[in-house]
Design a binder for these strands. Structure first.
Lengths: 344, 344
DNA sequence: TTTCTTGTTGTGAACGTTCACTGTTGTTTT
DNA sequence: AAAACAACAGTGAACGTTCACAACAAGAAA
């Protein structure tokens, strides 16, 4: 029936069987409206019978569109390489769904920041665009992003939304979310609120959360105490260390707002080790609402980010960019999830 | 410099700049040894200067090899679509690493079992092979796998290792792991051990774990009591329900071996609700060692699967298959992680 | 009737590689 | 010194689509 006795059928085989030309097959299967309904159905039927599928490579090569996006996690190297930040893992689920809804394929990669790989994804036509998820020292990533932007690579990033970085960014309104957390703690009568997490511009998301907390405190007539802010990255261990530092210093505090749940969980361990009760002695609020947050004792109060919305908006934003119409950066609201760690 | 005033450089541009023919460029960049060292270096240099990368689509089209594998999660539909089983999420990390090490790209998809999509991944030349991760009613998946095998699709699956299913499977030695868990509980002096999880052939992994438990008990001279086995799927809620069923029934038991950590966590909640202490009244052992397992109170004793090894072996196995040499199925050992939920 | 649409299909080329051969050197063997 | 063989590079075609354009029919407008 086909030209070749062996191998997968091609559009030529379908065309032959349907008695039309090969490009007509291509058009029909793509849903091009210039093909009559009758021939389209006939072609679709034959394609199904012969178990034919369009060759993705040939299609992408010719059309210069891969209908694929690459999801790149970039982070500072960690000891355990296969361990992924739980928050981004959740994001992955949402992005997968969003890409599937748009009929896109999703490539993923966890290349470390040292590698140049991510730069090549679009150049090599593997993907039409990139979604970047990352954490760690922001200033290190900026350079890469500028490079990507210069090369005309399409990408959308999850992170702190500001105008100073190249590329479109989607992220939670961290300042507002920090304010929510702060107000909640103040409502519980807490007055000396510690912040665990880096608070300088190298970590703009954490910085925003801290600024939100400070704003809430000032509004309540309390001047934030800088000595209650301790640097920490998003790991349980750093959270434990940070809380320990605070305790060793003899600092007085009745609440902790941690920049992430992992930090909060680590901090709770340190508090338990020191014989302090949560929320009795110290109320704790985290950020992210990772699955483990509800497993702790007491369950952790935290700020949930709109993960589902995030994935969808990231994909939308990226797709728009690929198609030449740029969408503006977007800020998503965070939502306070009150659990036992902050209320009596 | 090139033939075209605009757009990405092609291998022709590199060839022109290097004063060689275009196929030589292709050969050089592929590392073909029939290109002299000198010209290879020259070509590589020029390629770097011109920011050239090989077009993945053209390359894959011509060579009929995409150097990409697709990772497909298939599961029975759940209420929250973006929620992914934590164990498979961990597996994802390991598979990503393994594919990166082999220089492969990784496509992922969470298509539900209803869809036919997964069948098309290889046909459309998107991927050279498939890795299947899934849970739920096994008998439903068998049919699909037989279909894949019939079509000559290359795939490797994570799950229960047995000879009866088509395709190569890699998995933990569930019987042995179940025995480990059982022996541990028996060592703690427990005699009436309940099993929470489906134990019929529709769920061969859980079934293996149960058989292992039974074997350990018989070896210790205790005949397993069927009434202490309660069906449950891998969710916290089902675990809670299962434990509640057991309690409502007035069953006597001093230990629970849950077929997964999520089930175990749910069961611990039910025990707490009933005023029973862990491990005082009931010792609990889970399976998987998901991140949350160490967060519970008390921390959960569990069986850790060799996730890192799993990813590597799955990729190896699949790659071998693609290259025409079949590797045998593999069983990986599980490792007991003793925490507070099972020892006093 | 003639001309212009509109809808549908066919034609030839192009996307950017890799593959299978054919040449061309220069070196080794007989 | 002729023949044989490497080692390397070039030539033409092929992979399976999609694109731009031409061509044809049938009905509408002139």
């Amino acid at each position: 029936m086909g030209r070749k006795p062996t191998g997968r059928p091609t559009s030529f085989d379908i065309a032959y069987a349907a008695g039309v030309s090969q490009p007509t097959v291509s058009r029909a299967l793509r849903g091009d409206r210039s093909v009559s309904e009758k021939t389209r159905q006939k072609i679709e039927q034959i394609a199904r019978d012969l178990n034919y599928t369009v060759d993705k490579n040939a299609s992408s090569l010719r059309s210069q569109r891969s209908n694929t996006i690459a999801l790149l996690f970039f982070e500072d190297p960690t000891p355990d390489e296969t361990m992924i930040n739980p928050f981004f893992l959740a994001m992955l689920g949402s992005i997968t769904k969003a890409t599937a809804d748009e009929g896109l394929d999703l490539l993923i990669s966890f290349q470390r920041m040292e590698d140049d790989w991510h730069v090549q994804y679009q150049d090599s036509h593997r993907a039409d665009g990139l979604i970047l998820l990352g954490y760690g020292d922001y200033t290190k990533y900026r350079e890469r992003m500028d490079q990507l932007a210069r090369q005309g690579t399409h990408f959308a990033r999850w992170g702190s939304v500001s105008s100073d970085s190249s590329g479109v960014t989607v992220g939670t309104d961290n300042v507002e979310a920090g304010r929510l957390a702060g107000e909640h703690l103040l409502d519980q009568g807490r007055k000396r609120i510690a912040f665990l997490g880096h608070a300088d511009d190298h970590y703009p998301e954490f910085n925003g959360r801290y600024r939100g907390l400070c704003a809430a405190m000032r509004k309540a007539g309390i001047e934030p105490d800088d000595s209650l802010q301790v640097d920490a990255l998003t790991t349980e261990e750093e959270g434990r260390q940070a809380a320990k530092t605070l305790l060793d210093r003899g600092a007085e505090f009745d609440a902790i707002f941690a920049a992430s749940d992992l930090i909060a969980i680590g901090a709770m361990r340190a508090l338990a080790d020191a014989g302090l009760s949560v929320p009795g002695d110290v109320a704790v609020v985290g950020f992210d609402d990772i699955p483990s947050a509800s497993m702790t004792t007491p369950p952790l109060t935290t700020v949930m980010q709109d993960i589902r919305g995030a994935g969808q908006i990231l994909v939308e934003t990226l797709l728009a960019q690929v198609e030449g119409r740029d969408l503006p950066p977007r800020k998503l609201p965070g939502k306070l999830i009150v659990r036992g760690s902050s209320v009596a």
